[in-house]
Amino acid sequence: MHVHLSALRYFRETVRCGSMRQAAESLRVAPSAINRQILKLEDQLQCRLFERMADGVRLTGAGEVLYRHAREIDQLLDRALSELDDLRGLRRGRVGLASEDGIIRDVLPPLLAAFHQEFPRVSFGIDVMTGPAVVQAVAEGQCDLGLAMHPQRHPDVTVLGEAAVPIGAVMRPEHPLATRAALRLSDLATEPVVMLKHGIGAQPDAHGLVRRWAQRTEVAETNSPGAVAALVRAGLALAMRSPIGIRAELATGELVFVPLVDPQVKAGRLALLARRERALPVAAAVLAERVKALLAETDRETRAAMDARMRP
């Protein structure tokens, strides 16, 4: 059985668009060409791939299986083309990244800009999502690399590098605690607080500790780290989080970050993730080495600063 790549391309685009007509417009071919290729696929595979409906199409169970493997074929082809380009000295490729919002705002831009200066023919596909979604995207092969805070373990995901990240209280500069060098949880026992929902950005152990403390003082809860910063800036309350994602506000003095040195609070963890037992495309592998070096430097700086604050 020989399945042509063009047929798989038409199939994938139909899934993405939700209809053969829209897929045809996207690929600039006639709708009849899309329909003909999909009918040929269904005949070859002896199963229906789509349920035809008035407003478009929907994958059948068999279609879901084919689509999952079709995406893997896409990624294999991208990797092969990237490696061939590298062999020809073109240094061309595309790196798929999945990242939490604060990381793409604060950590990656300077590194990606420097990488682009060195390899101008390499482009990036960047998807911003929550930490658990980053792990899932890496596990399913939807991206080459993932960056997440405190990622949960997954059998199909490996950690390529990581860095300790301080956890602390974020507040307005005029807050009475803003001048402190460090804080303990007991210092915050009566403070109103804005909470991030569990699994969004916050260090898991710290989240549980703050949840117990904040039962009486919680003012708001949100799934948006950006909203937390905005609410703190407005003077609603303080929040407990890492400084990643708010470095611009810290640099301008709009917000103040005071680290927690309480023995109950562990440092956060920023991790670079990849799919286990998958050879990265050349461009992604080179970028991964740069990110690992950045994380190692960040880890050294963070631990040195934390050790200095813990000294009497």
Rank of each mutant, 00 (worst) to 15 (best):
H175K: 05
H154Y: 06
F119E: 14
V194K: 01
V122S: 06
V165R: 09
G125D: 10
V159N: 02
K197T: 03
D144L: 05
L196W: 03
G125K: 15
Q152F: 07
V170I: 10
Q203K: 14
G125P: 01
L188V: 09
P204G: 15
L185C: 00
I126V: 13
D144F: 07
L145Q: 13
P166I: 00
R121P: 07
V128H: 14
P173Y: 15
G146D: 06
I126G: 03
A139V: 11
E191Y: 00
Q136T: 13
G161C: 06
D205N: 14
Q152A: 07
M195I: 13
I200D: 06
I167N: 02
A139Q: 06
G201K: 00
A202R: 13
H150G: 02
A133F: 01
R153S: 14
T190D: 11
R184P: 00
V128W: 04
H154P: 02
D156Y: 11
H175N: 10
D156W: 11
L196C: 09
P192E: 12
D144V: 15
H150A: 11
G125A: 14
P192A: 12
I126N: 06
E140T: 10
L183T: 02
T130R: 14
A133K: 08
G141A: 13
G141K: 07
F124E: 04
T190Y: 09
G131K: 01
P132I: 04
Q142G: 13
E162H: 07
G168V: 02
V194F: 03
I200W: 04
L188Y: 01
K197G: 01
A163Y: 01
A178H: 04
R121W: 04
V134M: 09
T179K: 12
G201H: 12
A169C: 04
Q152H: 12
L183A: 00
G146Q: 03
P132C: 14
G201R: 14
S123C: 13
Q203H: 14
V134F: 15
Q152N: 11
A137S: 09
V135P: 08
H154I: 05
E162L: 08
D187K: 01
V159R: 06
R172D: 10
L185E: 02
Q203E: 11
V135K: 10
G146S: 05
G199I: 11
V159S: 03
S186R: 15
F124S: 09
E140M: 09
V194Y: 04
Q142K: 07
A169H: 00
P166Q: 01
I167R: 03
V165L: 07
L196P: 08
P151Y: 04
Q203A: 10
M195Q: 14
D187R: 04
I200S: 09
G146L: 07
H150R: 13
M129I: 15
D187N: 05
S123W: 08
V134R: 11
T130Y: 09
R180K: 14
M129P: 09
H150V: 13
V128N: 05
L185A: 00
L185T: 00
V135N: 03
F124Y: 03
P155I: 02
A169Y: 02
D144K: 06
M149P: 12
V165C: 04
P151S: 03
Q203S: 10
V138S: 05
E162R: 12
D127H: 11
A163M: 07
V135L: 02
